[in-house]
Amino acid sequence: MLEIKNLHVKLEEEDKQILKGVDLTVEAGKVHAIMGPNGSGKSTLSYVLSGRDGYEVTEGTASLDGADLLEMEPEERAAAGVFLAFQYPVEIPGVGNMIFLRTAVNAQRKARGQDELSATDFLKEVRAKAKALKIDAEMLKRPVNVGFSGGEKKRNEILQMAMLEPKMCILDETDSGLDVDAMKLVAEGVNALRDEQRGFLVITHYQRLLDHIKPDVVHIMAEGRIVKSGGPELALEVEHNGYADILAEVN
């Protein structure tokens, strides 16, 4: 489904290489986790896949179901099925959460040649999905992420993901800033979306999240490359021994 080959990325403004040849394939129905020390390029990978400005791809490819992602605008990638749950969800004063969600859902439907969702159908769906994530009606009325707690922001990301039903979900440190209960809630939301057609790329610092979202494959990223891949046990190894052993072994 998601295929990344030899991806090299530098910062647009500076001569700084961040990704130095990432190879990664996420199959439909699988959950891949990426762990790695600070500054290893995990978040950059998520931004490059979703099309954020400021990065320059110097080599390599990234495609979703054969379509070249790197050629697409961010909104085209979204319509193609890419979703990034932000590490720091953005506050947008003046834009109501509900209007934002509805515009996004309908923009994607339109891009895919589907009819827009009627106001009633949309409302029904959003209420049901919000309820499962314990997001109350008041939160839906408020401006996007404004005045939301850390946990509320992350739950709001998952709600967007549930409404947009992407093919490829990229979660960038969704566990950061969450207490145990909030993390469980978010993980439940993610698990509810797991199915045969959907792929997940879960970026995290800690094994903790992976207790709740069970990965099929765990990758260790360091200095802009995936240096080791394995099963869920790799995450436990990191949890117990840190990254030093793995990095030493690789080097």
Binding site: D53, E75, A78, P89, V90, I92, A107, Q108
Partner: peptide, 13 residues
């Protein structure tokens, strides 16, 4: 930042 957030959700520029 807000612009990218909206676009990443499929809303055209």
């Amino acid at each position: 930042t807000a612009m990218f957030y909206l676009r990443s959700r499929g809303i055209p520029t």
